[in-house]
Design a binder for these strands. Sequence first.
DNA 1: TATTGTTATACTCTATAACTATA
DNA 2: TATAGTTATAGAGTATAACAATA
Lengths: 138, 138
Amino acid sequence: MPNEPAHELRLTIMRLARQLRSQKAEGDITDGQRSVLFSLEDAGAQSLSALSARERVTPPSMNRTVGALVALGLVTRETASDDARRVTIGITDDGIRFVRETRRRRDEWFSSRLSTLTPEERAILAKAAPILKGLADK
Amino acid sequence: MPNEPAHELRLTIMRLARQLRSQKAEGDITDGQRSVLFSLEDAGAQSLSALSARERVTPPSMNRTVGALVALGLVTRETASDDARRVTIGITDDGIRFVRETRRRRDEWFSSRLSTLTPEERAILAKAAPILKGLADK
DNA sequence: TATTGTTATACTCTATAACTATA
DNA sequence: TATAGTTATAGAGTATAACAATA
């Protein structure tokens, strides 16, 4: 692939992602809060320090984010059973519902766009998808 | 395209975009500052209010962002010749260099990833690119 | 009197430093 | 003495409200 198409494809990817990101979830939480919630739903309960490392944020900052999510009832904060210094952050049923609803909305929006394509175009995207995934995994 | 692949493709796009965004430019300015700079390079000099509307930010906020860019020598702020209330924000030569360097780095990073693909895979992406662009333009 | 930009002030998010409790 | 988390405090960035200058 020559360089100019690479440039176009890159811009297109950034633009599509921007549009997808702007499809807000209902409860309107911040980006950081949403990221933590997705992380917890995806990787399970974690200690505060593990979570802050994963999200590349300092522990005090993560503490605040977690506090906000606890206040919203989307996350739990409990002292670990084996080490009383440690705290385990988990996602609540409401949190899980929130994550799934957000995913559903984003998928729905994207699917509705895809549905405007011709079968041939969709077939090309179906072939391109795993290649793009490979790029992201590198 | 069935629904599951749509989900995968969406995630892949968001992930690639995140990786592209994290390819920092040199001078390390904020996201908002970079966005304004790209906008000025792209659409030319603009008034403060036009710029704040375009970036969906309030005038006071844009004023602060512009002030920071002026201090960095990347942008100019001058009173308009026809209306003394108005201010025209323009990009400097250094600003243009900054934008182009950032673009160059991002393209380079993305191209280097593409270069790991087989010619067949690149051909598929070349066909997929305009389709994705069409989706983003909708 | 309406419009353009700026200043004053407050709120949110994140960071570093200091502190508490536990190991 | 080291570690996990929290609290205190400060620095960006953005917002609304009030203000100044110009049309």
